[in-house]
């Protein structure tokens, strides 16, 4: 307040309990932790597997290995992008090259940041529950300052999304080499749709298409785009989870089919 005499800083209320919340505030961070950890475990296992990511009969490519950019890729799995990378050392899989992009996109995503800051880093675990750390500088300095590169990953994610769409188109491949649809095709498409819903709902995207403008009225088309992106953005958390599940599901399905499970064919 603007009283004339500056009052010296005074102590806060002496409340012994660290939090007085009586609800199950720990449940959400716990579930988030389990969900994210589960994904990390799957992803780690999967990138070391280095086989069973391509089903030649139906042209299914597992999303974790798309695009496959090395000479060591299974024949047929590399497509229009070719293989700019040479034969990889045996401990490295092609997935490791490309997953940097979607991985980085998600790792720097504003929603994922919230979820892992809360559930992994406990900063804070829940609202009005004390931070698990003594010192806190947030994203003001290295390394967390680097989160600002999210914009780069967004541009990359648009490219990755385009590739996944291409993959899904390829998966309309029947046994006889002509047009065909299998359960795998459906799953790949579902995944692509959810990935786009997630990618286009990105906060960086919202800013780029229109959010950075001051006068919407002078840019009606960008305003319209901003409004549409805004609708996805409202459900960004939802699509973050759904697309994470769908990418695992799609990948696991291709893995399974590639390893010998029969694909449920709908047409040819």
């Amino acid at each position: 307040m603007t009283t004339t005499a500056a009052t010296p800083p005074r102590p806060r209320a002496a409340i012994a309990e660290r939090t007085l919340r009586t609800d199950r505030w720990w449940l959400t961070p716990l579930l988030t932790f389990l969900g994210l950890a589960g994904f990390l475990v799957y992803a780690t296992v999967r990138i070391f597997v280095d086989t069973d990511y391509w089903v030649d009969a139906y042209h299914y490519l597992a999303p974790f290995y798309s695009p496959c950019l090395a000479d060591s890729c299974v024949p047929g799995s590399s497509h229009f992008l070719g293989s700019p990378f040479p034969q990889l050392p045996s401990w490295m899989s092609p997935a490791m090259i490309i997953l940097v992009l979607p991985g980085g996109f998600r790792a720097t995503c504003y929603y994922y940041r919230k979820s892992y800051y809360r559930s992994f880093w406990l900063s804070p675990p829940a609202c009005a529950v004390p931070d698990g750390h003594k010192k806190y500088t947030g994203e003001t300095r290295f390394p967390l300052l680097v989160q600002n590169v999210h914009r780069y990953f967004f541009y990359a994610a648009v490219l990755v999304g385009a590739v996944l769409t291409y993959d899904a188109t390829l998966s309309f491949h029947g046994k006889d080499g002509g047009f065909g649809i299998g359960l795998g095709t459906v799953i790949l498409w579902l995944n692509v749709v959810l990935i786009w819903a997630y990618t286009l709902g990105c906060h960086s995207c919202r800013n780029i298409v229109g959010g950075r403008l001051t006068h919407f009225s002078k840019h009606p088309i960008r305003y319209w785009m901003w409004t549409q992106v805004g609708k996805l953005n409202k459900r960004h958390q939802l699509f973050a989870w759904l697309s994470m599940f769908s990418v695992v599901a799609a990948d696991a399905y291709v893995w399974a089919v590639s390893a010998g499970m029969t694909d449920l064919r709908i047409f040819n």
């Binding site: 940041r113 919230k114 800051y117 900063s123 609202c127 947030g138 994203e139 967390l144 300052l145 953005n233």
Partner: peptide, 26 residues
């Protein structure tokens, strides 16, 4: 930069202002 977008501000706002999504992140 101190804000790590954990959204507690948005959760408690009685006016339901989307503080994090509509102000901080932009």
């Amino acid at each position: 930069g101190f804000c790590n977008i954990t959204k507690c501000c948005t959760e408690v706002c009685p006016e339901h202002i989307k503080i994090t999504d509509n102000a901080i992140i932009p």
